[in-house]
């Protein structure tokens, strides 16, 4: 019971902020609710199929395959695959977090997941088209190249740091989840 209640602290705090805002600046509260409602609709359309796809990956694709394609030894090939996966037109970044988490559980390296998330947010093909139109080809190309280099370097650095001092709290939580999936399934 406590656990469930704890989960809803976040949404409740946000709700309180909205109510408070509606007393102070009604127009801003209405505007904000409108935006949230629009995003909620989009999310309800996108998230269920994404979670189902993850479920399919979790059940069908064996760990050693992911490790080979996206693991620590995957080198340039792994970075290339992550980049392509990330640039596909597949929606907002919050969709990618659970995907990256699933892939890491299946053996993908942190380097590749940093590139994957970064490409998803910063190098998406439809987004690049809009950028060229409004900011010009020179700006867009230079940003693309610099961002890609930065992402690979960031990925390598984060991998190193996390190998030296792993996020124990997260690892433990993840292991508990994997265990409960196996019992439940």
């Amino acid at each position: 019971m406590m656990k469930i209640a704890k989960k809803f602290i976040g949404p409740s705090v946000v709700l309180v902020i909205y109510v408070a805002l509606s007393f102070w600046r009604r127009d801003l509260a209405i505007q904000s609710s409108q935006v949230t409602w629009d995003y909620l609709k989009e999310m309800l359309l996108i998230l269920p199929p994404v979670f189902l796809l993850m479920g399919l990956i979790e059940t069908w694709i064996p760990k050693d395959k992911i490790q080979k394609w996206l693991g620590r030894g995957s080198g340039f090939k792994g970075i290339g695959i992550s980049l392509v996966l990330g640039t596909l037109p597949t929606g907002p970044l919050y969709v990618a977090f659970p995907m990256a988490a699933t892939l890491i559980r299946k053996g993908a390296s942190h380097t590749n997941m940093v590139v994957f998330l970064g490409a998803w947010a910063a190098l998406k093909i439809p987004q690049i088209m809009v950028e060229i139109k409004f900011l010009g080809i020179a700006f867009t190309l230079l940003r693309f190249v610099l961002t890609l280099v930065a992402l690979v370097l960031m990925g390598l650095l984060i991998e190193r740091i996390l190998r030296k001092s792993p996020d124990l709290q997260w690892l433990q939580k993840t292991q508990e989840e994997v265990a409960s999936d196996q019992i439940g399934g």
């Binding site: 949404p11 705090v13 801003l28 609710s33 935006v35």
Partner: peptide, 11 residues
């Protein structure tokens, strides 16, 4: 929570 915050910042 995230959606609520997104709405606030964008609003």
């Amino acid at each position: 929570t995230v959606l609520g915050i997104v709405g606030l910042t964008l609003g």
